[in-house]
Design a protein around this nucleic acid. Structure first.
Lengths: 292, 292
DNA sequence: CATCGGGTATAACAAAACGTTATACCCAGA
DNA sequence: TCTGGGTATAACGTTTTGTTATACCCGATG
């Protein structure tokens, strides 16, 4: 037995007419007739007397009415209550991001998203990529924004942006007016690196190794923070290869200079990663849409 | 949404297992899985966490449970209440019968039926056939037992027995030792008739007219009661043609004699008539079954 | 460590249910 | 008598619901 039958029964009783009930529910009259018949068959009794083409509720119908009403009301109420509870659940969104993305790209992005969806409470947690993906696995975060490849096949992975790794030097460096240099020239410079487990550093090293110049480059300094690297480069301590995202402002304001490397371009994708769930928070789908 | 889904949800919560719920409801496990999925889709939220192959009710599930329980309970209650009300309705049975059937056949029949279905309160009303059928039309009686043809096509008509019209004479009548007489011999006898509107009389007259002897028979007396006719015949006032039913006892005890008429046999069907309703009182179907 | 038994999810398919249109019928009112 | 509003029924296509077969995961057991 369907709840729709009981709902329809109430409507027919209230309206006193099957046709009218059909119109109000945007159904054909035979459909409603059948729904009532099903109820009558189920209870094995007439619910309406059909006399002179008109309906009159029978005794059994009068008995059924309050039950039907109560059931339909409870059911509607249950919808509201659950919607509310999932509404609270849906009202927040926890984003996890890797360091680069989280520190340089996401703040403005989240600002714009928040302006578009002010009712969603957004939280941002920044960790390195493996930790972020671990959080995603454990449902600590709702979605992850990372660079670098994601291997877990249980995740849904979409590219949402690109970033470029670029060579930057101090504004008073001899290369400052050159459009581009040859890769081999790097050997003469003091290179400042991120710590060795950094995804960014891995990519750069791979690239240099492929071109056979990695060994020739002096590892002058290792610094665990992008911001510190930028300051070091600005201070003339060396050069570095950094995501364009992180140095956009410094380039613009002339504190740092970008120098191209001939025939080399290191772009990498930025990935939006989420769990393959049957039900997502509304914020997740909203944010995914927003990123397109 | 079906009430079965809510019922099933309660069961799964109670049992803590989809497979167990499936077994208890004699359904396949995929069927139950899908029912739960439908609920989850309807409420657009998970109701169970599937972890390590085990189910754990979610927050939303916990919220839904009391509603589901209440709805299922109300629904069950509604069934009981309506069954009770129709039960009272079903507890009685009003039978209408024509005079002959009602006075001679039905008393013992109803006695046996009552023994078989003691909980059904049976009422018998006896009128002539047209009146009985009128009562059936107006729902004054639940079923009718009549002889003679029923024309109304809205009725369901089933033959439930046969009756024979037989010639009876006093026990001291000259014919008393004869197996049968010739039709023509009737002309010499004093025939006692029922009143002219009697169905029985019509049948007999038709038969006699077909054989061309009706005009030759003296209409000696008209009496409006079968019982009175029997007494008149016993008293030697004449002979009569009566339903075997009505004279069975007198024949047995020798107060009257049956005399066959050569080549003539007047059997007629006794009809069980009922309205073509979608829902019948239980007593009606029980009585119909009983008569087979 | 492989295997087994219990659990859930999914695909594919047959059977049942549901809504549709077309149609019949009945009754009241013009 | 015809029309308009009502209900019931038949026929038909689509959707839903159950089934079996199958995959997969996990914990227990040999």
């Amino acid at each position: 037995m369907k709840l729709e039958n009981l709902k329809m029964f109430c409507l027919v009783v209230d309206e006193g007419s099957i046709s009218q009930a059909a119109r109000l529910s945007f159904l054909s009259q035979p459909a409603v007739t059948r729904q009532i018949h099903q109820l009558e068959n189920y209870y094995n009794t007439l619910l309406f007397d059909r006399e002179e083409g008109r309906l009159r509720v029978t005794e059994a119908g009068k008995l059924l009415y309050p039950f039907a009403k109560a059931i339909v009301n409870d059911f509607n109420h249950s919808k509201v209550v659950i919607q509310q509870s999932t509404g609270e659940y849906n009202a927040n969104l926890i984003v996890g991001a890797s360091l680069t993305i989280g520190e340089y790209l996401l703040p403005s992005l989240l600002g714009r998203f928040k302006k578009q969806q002010p009712e969603i409470k957004v939280t941002l947690t920044i960790k390195n990529t493996p930790r972020v993906l671990e959080d995603l696995s454990n449902d600590v975060i709702d979605l992850a924004l990372v660079e670098g490849l994601v291997e877990n096949t249980d995740f849904i992975v979409d590219k949402f942006a690109e970033d470029e790794l670029i060579l930057v030097c101090p504004s008073d460096h001899p290369w400052k007016d050159r459009k581009e240099i040859q890769l081999e020239e790097l050997g003469n410079e003091r290179m400042i690196w991120r710590e060795s487990i950094s995804g960014t550093r891995l990519i750069v090293e791979n690239m240099l190794r492929e071109h056979g110049v990695l060994e020739k480059i002096e590892s002058y300094m290792e610094i665990g923070s992008t911001q510190a690297i930028k300051s070091a480069v600005e201070a003339g301590l060396g050069i570095s290869i950094l995501p364009r995202l992180t140095v956009a402002r410094e380039l613009e304001q002339g504190f740092l200079c970008k120098v191209g490397i001939s025939r080399i371009e290191i772009t990498r994708n930025l990935w939006l990663v989420r769990k393959n769930k049957r039900f997502n928070k509304i914020g997740v789908s909203k944010f995914v849409d927003f990123l397109r």
